[in-house]
Design a protein around this nucleic acid. Sequence first.
DNA 1: CGTTATTGTGTAATATGTTTGCATGATCGA
DNA 2: TCGATCATGCAAACATATTACACAATAACG
Lengths: 312, 312
Amino acid sequence: MIDSKLRVLQMVAHHGTVTAAAAALHYTPSAVSHQLRQLAAELGVELLSQSGRGIRLTAAARTVLRHADVLYEQVERAKAELAAAVDEPGGSFTLCGFSTAATHLLPPAAAALRDRYPQLSVRVIEAEPGRCFDLLLAGDADLALLTATAQTPPSSDSRFDQRPLLDDPLDLIVPDQHPLADRATATLADAADEPWIVGRPGSAYHHLVVTACMAAGFTPNIAHHADEWDTGTALVAHEFGVMLVPRLARLHEEWPVTRIPLRGEPAPARRILAATRLGGREHPMVASALGTISATAASLLPPPQPVGDEAE
Amino acid sequence: MIDSKLRVLQMVAHHGTVTAAAAALHYTPSAVSHQLRQLAAELGVELLSQSGRGIRLTAAARTVLRHADVLYEQVERAKAELAAAVDEPGGSFTLCGFSTAATHLLPPAAAALRDRYPQLSVRVIEAEPGRCFDLLLAGDADLALLTATAQTPPSSDSRFDQRPLLDDPLDLIVPDQHPLADRATATLADAADEPWIVGRPGSAYHHLVVTACMAAGFTPNIAHHADEWDTGTALVAHEFGVMLVPRLARLHEEWPVTRIPLRGEPAPARRILAATRLGGREHPMVASALGTISATAASLLPPPQPVGDEAE
DNA sequence: CGTTATTGTGTAATATGTTTGCATGATCGA
DNA sequence: TCGATCATGCAAACATATTACACAATAACG
């Protein structure tokens, strides 16, 4: 619907280099370079200038991008309106999100979509927040579930529509024999002096724990890194430290650990955002998926449990 | 910048038939048909249905068109902003307009453009109002001067930006020996009983004269058809009737005819409109051309001449 | 009521544009 | 200085769009 060269320019702006943009678009750097040159010729302006071994966008390119964002938004609106007017929409629809979302939230939504739109090909992609935005931009995904990280585009970014979907409360996981284990609730500060188990640096999970602790007034003593919930749980079970697990993440029962809901003001939680391309939120499938996801989330973490050891 | 298939759909909607749209776009009907089929497949909706030997647009097609208009407007804005930021804009710029405008108004504007933007290739196309809109839509022209006719799109049409540029007063042309010839001014009604010389039916000039007479309260007795001012003037000189000539149109001195300014409330005049694609009005070249045209018009028909025989 | 001119669609051949693979030049970090 | 990373240019492979032509359906005409 819109010249693909604009999308190329957008990707180059997003990634900063031709090569990275090419990778995100499943192109070769040559193609990207050529398309940019061609777009510049069509528009009669310089779009980029060499800066060292990389490139830099000109003011004209920024202008183009600003307008491109509006164009894409309009296209999304058009698509949404069209899809709403068709009885049996075909094509494909892709949901993406980070691990827990992909495990617990996305499959029910995808199933509901499949049932409601028999002609539709529904796909799910598990991806970290950073990649989710790539997928949205490239059109490889239509709805993304993510948590805010340092590299999340600002909510005012005119390419995306990001809105809070739900707050997923954080639970503290301690060994069964830990002094806190018989507490109904705890605060983060209660575990300030414990060794902590967090995700690999750079991961959304790592960012989550560190910022939560910082907000509670201390810097966690990071003793171990574990990306998967089960790995971290095993470490906790062997008394290597404590960890934080969002309520949505279910743990296997077998581990001798206790799950303690955290309190505080506000209660520690990770905010889950639903992101679409700007203008795409009115799309009936997006609306349907968001509805299912909300319902699923409500059934998964609803009645504020008084006790925390309801692990799986 | 925008998928050409949308332009195809727009043209089909504008002309009502695939064949006519193809002609306006310099395509073959096959290509148009094929592109529409493809666009429909991409969007997943039916765009047109057979109606007799012609076609009819579906509601979905209307929806697409509504959004397409907004898209094109946004693109025009982007182009205008880009052109304003470039020192030496290249490319080409095309003015079009009906005969008198093309003769007296467009060339000075084109010359000014050429002087101001040396790298620019400036073109002028003489075209009737109906075709002007085709030229604008197809991108074959960037600014059009036209008079309102029955087939002019409404000013609310979301594809164009039409604004009044100036009112060109109408003069009555009579033979030198005509009873009215020594009058300083006249009303249209004064010539209600005369035989009239007008343009070929369907032409903008024909429409102009008839509506002016209707507004004055009578239906002209059409005796002769002449499309060129000189042809009509020759007929008047030979006492075949009277005619109406807009002030901007200059006549050769040699003819034994008298030019009488018309009065009335409002004074009979033809309204000249300046039309661009919606969003294109801010383009610096459009602004420059409109400035020159206004100045030219002011110098051509300014000080309300007390006497009308200033022919040539 | 057949005839003729229009209109839209489908198909194979052609023209056009895009993408790749590889080679080159340039810059940065070690 | 070397190796790694990055952007770009060019010819060839590839994909896409456009045409020319043939065909079916409809409306106007005599």
